[in-house]
Nucleic acid binder design. Structure first.
Lengths: 221, 221
DNA sequence: CATCATTGACTGAATGTTCAGTCTAGAAAC
DNA sequence: GTTTCTAGACTGAACATTCAGTCAATGATG
């Protein structure tokens, strides 16, 4: 596992290479789509020869599968970190919605919505990826429901069934991501974010002033 | 256009063949995935030679693209027909949710959720398919919001913003479809249907007794 | 010098597409 | 009514291309 090395922040050149390729793979997948991603592409983007890619990842399938795994982990870890930095449960939930709806300044691979569409399509057929996806979905819903429970304890939120709410919200976020990924003229990032937050505020019974409409504070003037 | 011929219910052998192939294509896509669909597959399933597929659809891309188009049209037409047969707006909305969440008895290609995942992934990159998807999404949202407006006029529904509600519901349905497609152990068809209907009843302010939990009426005892 | 990283050249398999021509049914000509 | 002609449906075999994966050789590095 590279997990321990990553956690320690110490990466051998081998692991660096691996990660380079994984990131390159995600970029290429985002651009060309999963199916049209060739070994030669990620090799070129990494600045190495195609043969070296096979040297590290025995097979193309393994490369792409690991790339997906890598994406999931980065995404989830990033989420966890953000949650820890926020004071209220309402703010945490808002952050989750923002992560799903609003584009990020940095060009992290995660900000590419189309990647998730490919991921889902793949998960429907590749058993391994499917299992990964289910696990991560579960993880995500549990995060949401635990936030709800926590917020209910502090009196921040109204009484609703946390599990049903988690299903509702996570599905809603996925659905909005689809529209955003497809550049829907009506359901853009901002609109999706707003509609979703209003829904949440309504359900959980807290007031939401929309100060996060544009990332980093309102600039309506 | 074959539209007029289709409307008249009279199809020449040529059009029959086309439709055969389109249906076969959808079946194969549902099974093997869009990317792994070979023209040899749809040829075999149709009982013809691969060359004939090219004879009708100049290129593989065109075949698959038209198959998607065909799917959209069948799906939407089916929806329209069902709407027309129902008495109340609440029933119509419930039917929409059922179409998205509950499996159908007949083995129509539409009942395959994975098909939609492939479709979305494709729409993100193929401009033509993307435009189609946006148009259909819009069409779908308008159907929902018009139902809301109608139900509000008759007093069936509470006052909410129809457009926002349409965005919310259509995104929610897409998101639930994702979970169902991926065989999520927690969010299965029934649960998705129920959660979604409770949400709608809550938002629009009507009572829902869940009599449709299993297709064809309650059978609780 | 021994191990690991790296590469260019190559191969084999898969598969979309072309092409030259066959078969059938029906119209036209006689 | 028989023959001829034609058009469209259809096919098998060949073609061209794309690409994942192999391999032997070379370079770096400790």
């Amino acid at each position: 596992m590279t997990d321990t090395a990553e956690a320690a922040g110490v990466l051998g050149t081998a692991d660096q290479r691996r990660e380079q390729m994984l990131r390159a793979a995600l970029e290429v997948i985002a651009e060309r789509g999963y199916a049209d991603t060739r070994i030669a592409d990620v090799a070129e983007r990494t600045g190495i020869s195609p043969a070296l890619v096979i040297y590290y990842f025995k097979t193309k399938d393994q490369l792409l599968t690991e790339a997906i795994r890598y994406l999931e982990n980065v995404w989830y870890a990033d989420g966890q970190r953000r949650m820890a930095e926020l004071p209220t449960d309402a703010a945490r939930i808002e952050e989750i919605v923002a992560m799903s709806c609003l584009p990020e300044a940095d060009a992290e691979p995660r900000s590419s919505w189309t990647l998730w569409l490919d991921f889902w399509a793949l998960a429907a057929r590749n058993p391994g990826v499917g299992a990964l996806r289910r696990k991560d979905d579960e993880r995500w819903r549990e995060l949401i429901s635990s936030l709800v429970v926590s917020g209910q304890k502090t009196g921040e939120f109204r009484e609703v069934d946390p599990d049903s709410f988690a299903i509702l919200l996570s599905a809603l976020l996925d659905g909005l991501a689809v529209q955003i990924a497809l550049d829907d003229p009506v359901v853009g990032s901002e609109r999706a974010f707003e509609v979703c937050m209003r829904f949440i505020a309504d359900q959980l019974g807290f007031t939401w002033d929309g100060s996060r409409g544009r990332r980093g504070g309102r600039s309506s003037g």
